[in-house]
């Protein structure tokens, strides 16, 4: 299978760099997979789980929003925060969600919609986390 170059960068570090087979990205307008030879795209990312497939192995990385760019050189993901699934502190994540729920009261109008949307994304990550843990 043809591979392509994939860089995952967060503001603080280069989190991943290498040749991969496939990357599934949680886009704002829906999830999409990137294979070698994908058409050039710039897409915004919602908070979710990014799956990297290398030689049949799947690696899941949590991204909290950002931007994906596909060019002829490969795929670059600018992630706001990127944590691999194993490194994530689940208790802290739950705490963040609780904090966000608390914070909802302070928002109004369009900002409230944005906050709720963001919270929903976080909750869906949490749900996916707990469902994979049960298997």
């Amino acid at each position: 299978m043809a591979t392509f170059h994939f860089d995952l960068v967060s503001p603080e570090k280069l989190a991943f760099s290498g040749e991969v087979d496939q990357v599934d990205i949680p886009g704002v307008e829906g999830d999409f997979g990137v294979l070698a030879g994908h058409a050039p795209v710039v897409a915004a990312i919602r908070p979710g789980i990014l799956t990297v497939t290398t030689a049949g192995r799947h690696e899941k990385i949590i991204v909290l929003g950002g931007l994906a760019e596909v060019s002829e050189k490969g795929l670059t993901v600018l992630a706001d925060v990127a944590t691999s699934l194993d490194e994530l502190d689940r208790a802290q994540f739950a705490e963040t969600i609780a904090e966000m729920e608390e914070g909802l009261k302070e928002h109004e109008g369009g900002e409230l919609d944005l906050a709720i949307e963001r919270l929903d994304h976080y909750k869906s990550i949490q749900q996916q986390l707990s469902s994979t843990a049960m298997h």
Binding site: V28, E29, P40, V42, A43, A44, L67, S71
Partner: peptide
């Protein structure tokens, strides 16, 4: 660059997200 990208969502929406960032 000469590549013409497809944008998802629209360019201006990406721009409004990106600029504060």
């Amino acid at each position: 660059s000469t590549t013409s990208y497809e944008y998802e969502p629209e360019e201006d929406e990406i721009l409004t997200r990106l600029l504060p960032r």
